[in-house]
């Protein structure tokens, strides 16, 4: 038994209420539909086993997102083959805040996300989902609030640069073809 009545009812409610958000999160983290499906499925299988740990249904979403991230990290550690760009120099790069806003394509965004190390990618994904506060993100990642804000600032800057450069390349190519 649990807060919904039976475990089955509770897990069904979790699937109905959070499947879509978890799948989107899994997709943005992993960058692949099959991995996203597998991760989302794994989350609910684990949730079914550990349902007794969820005392307050209001925390269900954060709880499930945390399970998903842990499952993802477990997989990534097992694979150990992913290479990411270094963000060491990002802080020194001037943010081009006055640049025109490019049209952001979902696939381009994923390509840019795939270049970010997970510790930067996770907060930026959760940030743009807009359902999570900085505090929520910090708790999910188990890091201080300041660390979250610092990583977010750098990750957002990298994303903006990446997407702006892509837009510039596209524009230049289009102009070049026209000449």
């Amino acid at each position: 038994m649990s807060w919904f009545g039976s475990n089955k009812t509770a897990v069904e409610a979790l699937v109905d209420g959070h499947y879509a958000a978890l799948y989107r999160y899994a997709y943005r983290l992993s960058g692949a539909t099959q991995a996203a499906e597998d991760l989302t499925q794994e989350v609910f299988l684990q949730a079914q086993k550990m349902l007794h740990q969820l005392r307050d249904p209001a925390n269900a979403k954060s709880w499930l997102f945390t399970i998903l991230r842990n499952a993802y990290l477990h997989r990534v550690r097992a694979e150990k083959s992913t290479r990411f760009v270094s963000l060491d120099g990002v802080a020194e790069v001037a943010d081009r805040g006055n640049a025109p806003v490019p049209i952001v394509d979902s696939a381009q965004l994923q390509a840019a996300l795939n270049q970010l190390p997970e510790v930067f990618r996770t907060p930026v994904i959760l940030y743009y989902f807009e359902d999570f506060s900085y505090k929520d993100i910090a708790e999910q990642m188990n890091v201080p609030l300041g660390t979250v804000m610092s990583r977010l600032a750098r990750a957002k800057m990298v994303l903006r640069q990446s997407l702006t450069e892509h837009a510039e390349v596209t524009t230049t190519t289009a102009h070049g073809e026209g000449i």
Binding site: V15, D16, Y19, Y23, T40, D105, Y128, E130
Partner: peptide, 26 residues
């Protein structure tokens, strides 16, 4: 920028029928 990225971030189609299949498995 943030609005454009946020919109693209959430633009992930959900596979049809997956939640129902997941429930079957669960």
């Amino acid at each position: 920028f943030d609005l454009a990225i946020g919109s693209a971030m959430r633009d992930v189609p959900i596979p049809i029928g997956q939640p129902a299949m997941l429930k079957q498995q669960l």
